[in-house]
């Protein structure tokens, strides 16, 4: 009888074991993600310059942020880059997935070629494409030597074209990923419906447009959400391919944040730009994750 209380205590620990096991990881996430978000949010309202300073000055850093031409350029670039990157990657990925779905011999081999860019760092992608787009020794010279004298491919050094150089390299890297998503979705479409439709005399073309692609709407959604969040986070590709230049013509918000925080001693403005980026990502991801998690509960 006397031994009961300690047993109970051990029991209680045993019962709480799942929580205890989850605790360290969850605590780390709470501190390093959510705690840090609050810290950055606070700093974005202070007069921090070179070092963090905890004196609040309200929303002035945000006002400064939105008055800076460099930031407007970064936002405008993000819209162009994000839209084209997501749109072209989804189209190319979808096209490749449908083509690979045609009982192709050596499908695995071709798939490996299409997807390998996803395994390497954006820094390497940027370095490689920068060399290809080198105005004097790159592809431009090759095509000119072939006889097309006016051909220009020096996008990375052109104010108006540098952002498209980023789109090109980013699409190169990510369209294989979109293809992999679509291909696995194509393979999970109910084969009986397709068989029934083709027995009814529907052409393969019609089957794709009317039956298969519409049934893949959730995957389109996923691909677009994941790619847009990649676009907002893009940083290394810009560093390696254009350096944000010429000038700051091809800078993106992530590069702006880094520049302000580590090079220009404008910590409060850097923090404000990070908060704007977080808000943008949250606006896209939270509804998506919410619907994904809810969907799971119903299954």
């Amino acid at each position: 009888m006397l031994t009961r209380p300690p047993v109970k205590f051990i029991d209680r620990i045993a019962r709480a074991l799942p929580q205890i096991v989850v605790a360290p990881g969850f605590a780390a996430i709470l501190y390093f993600v959510y705690g840090f978000i609050i810290w950055t949010g606070y700093i974005s309202l202070t007069k921090s310059k070179m070092l963090p300073n905890y004196t609040l000055i309200g929303t002035r850093p945000y006002e400064r942020l939105f008055q800076m031409d460099r930031w407007s350029v970064a936002i405008e670039n993000l819209f162009i880059f994000g839209f084209l990157f997501v749109f072209v990657s989804v189209i190319v990925g979808c096209l490749l997935a449908v083509l690979l779905d045609q009982k192709i011999r050596a499908e695995g081999f071709i798939r490996t070629i299409y997807l390998y860019p996803m395994a390497i760092s954006f820094i390497i992608t940027g370095t490689a494409w920068k060399w290809i787009m080198n105005p004097s020794l790159g592809l431009e010279k090759v095509i000119r030597d072939w006889g097309w004298e006016s051909f220009r491919f020096g996008w990375t050094v052109d104010n108006n074209l540098a952002i498209y150089a980023l789109v090109m390299a980013a699409v190169w890297q990510a369209s294989g990923f979109a293809m992999a998503l679509f291909l696995s979705a194509l393979r999970s479409v109910d084969q009986d419906i397709i068989k029934a439709a083709s027995l009814d005399g529907a052409s393969p073309w019609r089957i794709y447009l009317r039956i298969i692609l519409p049934s893949m709407r959730p995957v389109f959604m996923s691909a677009m959400v994941i790619l847009s969040h990649l676009a907002i986070k893009s940083f290394d590709l810009v560093v390696a391919l254009t350096g944000g230049g010429p000038g700051y013509a091809s800078t993106l918000p992530a590069n702006f944040m880094y520049e302000m925080t580590f090079r220009r001693n404008e910590i409060a403005v850097g923090a404000a730009s990070a908060m704007v980026m977080l808000a943008t990502v949250a606006a896209i991801m939270v509804p998506y994750l919410y619907s994904e998690l809810r969907g799971k509960k119903h299954v």
Binding site: I29, L30, F32, F36, I37, K233, F235, A274, M275, V281
Partner: peptide
């Protein structure tokens, strides 16, 4: 809460 950690732009935690 953990899942959202996958998608947080790291700019917000660097400082």
């Amino acid at each position: 809460l953990i899942l959202f950690g996958c998608f947080v732009p790291f700019q917000v935690v660097i400082l």
